[in-house]
């Protein structure tokens, strides 16, 4: 059957079968159901303060997860992001306590994140270690480094207010800076991935490296970009984290790896099933944020939240694996 479509929109209507529809929007439905459910279950959920609060709570996670998305697009998985969050979140306070100006401290932390990404990609692209293993090892090394540079203690006292604003400030005493930074990161990343040749080539490399190579795309470079951006975004998140906490914590970012992966996996069930997209990841992070927030308000213990989160990851990955050829290694 070949119908000549008059516009792109025709096809979208014609092609969608019920199965695809159910798959594409099931995650969105879950999100809406959770939202309504929590609104009914507790009157503290659906308030403007709480909704803004959710955005603020997910901001650091989202930024890490968007970074992971760049790696995923090139079929590289970065398991070191949690410790990069920790590293950046320690470096900034440490440098500032020692008297370094704010911009320099931030640049140093971002540089450190980028450096980790480049070391990871040297291992993965240069030597050929699978990214899963290389970044797992890198994470272990970073964890050690984080404890050495911090002496195993929280770094606080002497962090300038101008820095803390990044994590604690609000525009018009209402909209938190972290949420604003997150929205900027998501918007910019979406644009780069969906509207530029950079994003297109990154997805080409992840989609079929050989075809990309034979189309004249520099496959190695794009794998490096994927891993480098993954680390770089984790560093951004780490900076915000330390500003939010007002201190540098030696094991500050550890939870962001699992939650970040969960956000990406959940995102892969929607929009373009099987492909990590910036918007998908954002919705994934939003779903995790709403769940945590709602369960919290209902007085659920954190270990229950952890179980629920695990179950959701399993369901998301099952959905993706069943419908697409999900290959991560």
């Amino acid at each position: 059957m070949t119908i000549t479509a008059t516009s792109e929109r025709d096809i979208v209507v014609r092609k969608i079968s019920f199965g695809m529809l159910a798959q594409k929007y099931s995650t969105l439905v879950v999100l809406v159901v959770l939202f309504i459910g929590f609104s009914v279950a507790t009157d503290r959920f659906f308030t403007s303060t709480n909704l803004v609060n959710i955005l603020q709570q997910i901001s650091m996670l989202t930024i890490v997860a968007v970074g992971l998305t760049f790696g995923f697009a090139a079929k590289e998985m970065d398991l070191s992001v949690g410790y990069v969050v920790g590293l950046a979140g320690l470096l900034c306070p440490l440098l500032m306590v020692a008297g370094t100006p704010i911009p320099l401290a931030i640049l140093a932390a971002l540089g450190a994140g980028l450096a980790v990404g480049l070391i990871n990609s040297a291992l993965v692209v240069g030597i050929g270690v699978p990214s899963l293993i290389a970044t797992l090892a890198a994470g272990s090394i970073l964890w050690g480094i984080n404890f050495i540079i911090s002496g195993g203690r929280a770094i606080y006292g002497g962090i300038p207010d101008g820095y803390l604003v990044l994590g604690q400030g609000k525009i018009g005493a209402f909209f938190p800076y972290p949420a604003l930074i997150m929205l900027l990161v998501v918007g910019l990343s979406w644009f780069v991935m969906e509207r530029t040749t950079f994003g297109r080539y990154l997805y080409a490399v992840g989609g079929n490296a050989r075809a990309a190579e034979l189309s004249g795309i520099n496959v190695k470079s794009y794998r490096v970009y994927g891993l480098a951006l993954s680390s770089f975004f984790a560093a951004i998140s780490g900076i915000i984290l330390s500003a939010r906490l007002g201190s540098g914590q030696p094991n500050g970012g550890e939870t962001y790896l699992l939650d970040g992966l969960a956000a990406v996996f959940i995102g892969m069930t929607m929009l373009r099933p099987g492909t990590a997209t910036v918007m998908g990841t954002f919705f994934g992070a939003l779903l995790i944020g709403i769940m945590n927030n709602g369960l919290n308000l209902m007085g659920m213990d954190t270990y229950i939240q952890s179980i629920v989160k695990g179950v959701i990851i399993v369901i998301a990955v099952s959905v993706v694996s069943r419908s697409t050829k999900l290959r991560l290694l």
Partner: peptide, 16 residues
């Protein structure tokens, strides 16, 4: 195997 990204559209593959 050598020329196409299988989950891409005709447009994306053609402009690769």
């Amino acid at each position: 195997i050598n020329a196409m990204v299988s989950d891409w559209t005709v447009r994306e593959n053609m402009s690769m």
